[in-house]
Simulated scan of single mutants.
Amino acid sequence: MLTAQPITIDLFAGAGGFGLGFEIAGFSVPLSVEIDAWACDTLRHNRPNMTVIQQDIRDLKTASSIKDICHFKPDIVIGGPPCQGFSIAGPAQKDPKDPRNSLFINFAEWICFLQPKAFVMENVKGLLSRKNIEGRKVIDIIKETFENLGYFVEVWSLNAAEYGVPQIRERIFIVGNNPLLSLSVRAIARSLMRQ
């Protein structure tokens, strides 16, 4: 029996690589949100049937503003909030007050309002060792945020070189699954492997 494609929305979409991986895995990605104009132009050129919203996600923080953009219920929400505040590249001393460090909260607001079956958030490996200004590990704060929304959360550390990419590129994936809404973790894993 044929079933409809599961629906994904891509937040902090960049030029669309994360969403492309999900498309290759059989997901439909009808909506992307990104602040950068050049990235949005690339998305619109490569995916003319996709709705591309060029806007700062911090301006979309109410249920009504999110639902005005997203007129459907996604099965999964994906995204890679900017990681400059966590990256091990660049200056050795990272600023725990860097405003980019809290963009995962905006991602969590979309999860809260849309209640997808699952989500996947990608970031740099440096996130695992970073702490906030009170000294709490950021990864623990992120996990707790999504657990409080009813999601079972796992953190996966993957190296792209182990999946055929000619580059040592380590990333972490924060994967949440709402057992009451249920989306196969196996389907999520297949999507990540194809990126």
Score class of each variant (00 low, 15 high):
Ile133Thr: 10
Met1Trp: 02
Pro91Glu: 15
Glu162Leu: 10
Phe107Pro: 14
Ala63His: 08
Ala89Met: 07
Arg186Ile: 15
Gly85Pro: 08
Thr3Gln: 13
Leu31Phe: 15
Cys112Leu: 11
Gly176Leu: 04
Ile174Trp: 09
Leu43Met: 09
Pro82Met: 06
Ile57Val: 12
Leu128Trp: 03
Lys131Gly: 00
Leu60Pro: 10
Val165Leu: 08
Thr8Phe: 01
Cys112Asn: 15
Ile111Arg: 06
Ser64Asp: 13
Leu127Asn: 01
Lys61Gly: 12
Ala63Gly: 11
Asp98Cys: 10
Gly80Asp: 13
Gly80Thr: 12
Thr51Lys: 15
Ala92Ile: 13
Ser129Ala: 14
Leu2Lys: 09
Ile133Tyr: 11
Met121His: 03
Leu43Gly: 03
Lys73Phe: 04
Ile174Phe: 11
Phe107Met: 06
Arg136Glu: 13
Ile133Ser: 12
Gly85His: 04
Gln55Met: 09
Arg130Cys: 11
Phe107Lys: 13
Leu183Arg: 00
Phe12Leu: 12
Asn49Pro: 05
Arg169Phe: 03
Cys112Trp: 04
Leu31Pro: 05
Asn101Gly: 11
Asn159Lys: 13
Val155Gln: 00
Ile141Glu: 15
Leu192Cys: 09
Asp140Pro: 09
Pro166Arg: 15
Ser191Glu: 08
Ser157Ile: 15
Pro30Ser: 11
Ile9Glu: 05
Trp156His: 13
Gly19Asn: 03
Ile139Leu: 13
Asp68His: 09
Asp140Thr: 04
Gln55Val: 12
Gln84Phe: 07
Gln195Trp: 06
Ser87Gly: 08
Ser32Thr: 05
Trp38Gly: 01
Ser32Gly: 13
Ile35Thr: 04
Val185His: 14
Pro30Gly: 05
Gly21Ser: 09
Thr3Leu: 10
Phe27Thr: 11
Phe113Arg: 02
His45Trp: 14
Arg190Trp: 07
Ala160Gly: 14
Leu31Cys: 14
Phe72His: 07
Phe152Asn: 12
Phe27Met: 04
Gly126Leu: 12
Gly14Pro: 07
Glu170Met: 05
Ile111Gln: 01
Pro74Ile: 03
Ser65Met: 11
Lys143Pro: 07
Gly176Asn: 05
Leu181Gly: 01
Val29Asn: 10
Val33Cys: 08
Ser191Cys: 05
Ala25Thr: 08
Trp156Ala: 14
Gly80Met: 11
Pro116Gly: 00
Ser102His: 14
Pro30Gln: 11
Ile168His: 08
Phe152Tyr: 14
Phe152Ala: 01
Ser102Asp: 09
Leu103Ser: 07
Leu114Lys: 00
Pro116Tyr: 03
Leu103Arg: 05
Thr42Gly: 04
Met1Gln: 00
Asn178Pro: 01
Arg100Ala: 09
Ser157Arg: 15
Met193Phe: 07
Pro166Asp: 14
Val124Lys: 02
Tyr163Lys: 04
Cys40Leu: 10
Ser32His: 02
Gly90Gln: 02
Phe27Asn: 07
Pro6Leu: 04
Tyr151Gln: 06
Phe107Gln: 07
Thr42Lys: 10
Phe107Leu: 01
Ser65Cys: 10
Gly21Met: 13
Ile53Arg: 10
Lys137Val: 08
Ser32Glu: 03
Met121Ser: 08
Pro91Ser: 11
Val138Gln: 06
His45Ser: 14
Asp10Arg: 00
Asn106Thr: 15
Glu34Lys: 00
Ile76Lys: 00
Ser191Lys: 00
Glu23His: 06
Lys137Cys: 13
Ile69Pro: 00
Asn177Gln: 07
Phe152Trp: 09
Lys61Trp: 08
Ala189Ile: 05
